[in-house]
Write a protein that binds this DNA or RNA. Structure first.
Length: 156
DNA sequence: GCCAACGTTGGC
DNA sequence: GCCAACGTTGGC
């Protein structure tokens, strides 16, 4: 069992959207970074824990908990000419981009970036490193446990 | 809208 | 294989 942090722009897919989706499961479309793709392809397993992170928005931070709900499979948006994620250089026989399905478990209070940065237990989190842009990053069990057990239950 | 940081591209 | 130019990410 591994743990991950996955960034989503809430304008596109928020934790509320995911919870409202059929089966609470959404296809994690639009990953166009090889390192993030490789995490999905090589390291993710069904049932892995996911911190659902809202990025590029007014209040960036962890907004919910989710689970990996499928193995990696080709992202259909790479073949859709009308999609912003269309990739003319990918071909059907050998798709370049993959996705996994993600099942939303529950919404949490918003744990903002600044609050995350205040936690000495989280100082090594990849998401908090300077210049980090990876949309999918591994989370250590210690980081996961601290966030889920110590931060999330706390009231603001 | 700004811009630092980073990943990708492509000429050589 | 190097690396400058370019495009993107994402917080502010």
């Amino acid at each position: 069992m591994r743990y991950w942090l996955m960034k989503s722009e809430p304008d596109e897919a928020s934790i509320d959207d995911a919870l409202a989706a059929q089966g609470k499961t959404i296809a994690w479309t639009g990953v166009r970074n090889y390192q993030a793709r490789n995490f999905m392809r090589d390291d993710m397993r069904i049932g892995d824990g996911v911190l659902f992170y809202h990025s590029s928005c007014a209040e960036p931070g962890i907004a919910g908990l989710a689970e990996v709900a499928s193995a990696a499979y080709p992202d259909p948006t790479q073949f859709d000419r009308k999609s912003p994620y269309y990739d003319p250089k990918s071909d059907q026989e050998n798709p370049r981009w993959l996705l996994v399905d993600v099942k939303a478990m529950r919404k949490t209070r918003l744990i903002g970036l600044s609050e995350l940065r205040e936690q000495s237990q989280l100082e090594d989190m990849i998401i908090l490193r300077r210049g980090n842009r990876l949309s999918i990053t591994p989370v250590t069990p210690a980081e996961w446990n601290f966030i889920v057990n110590k931060l999330i239950p706390k009231k603001t």
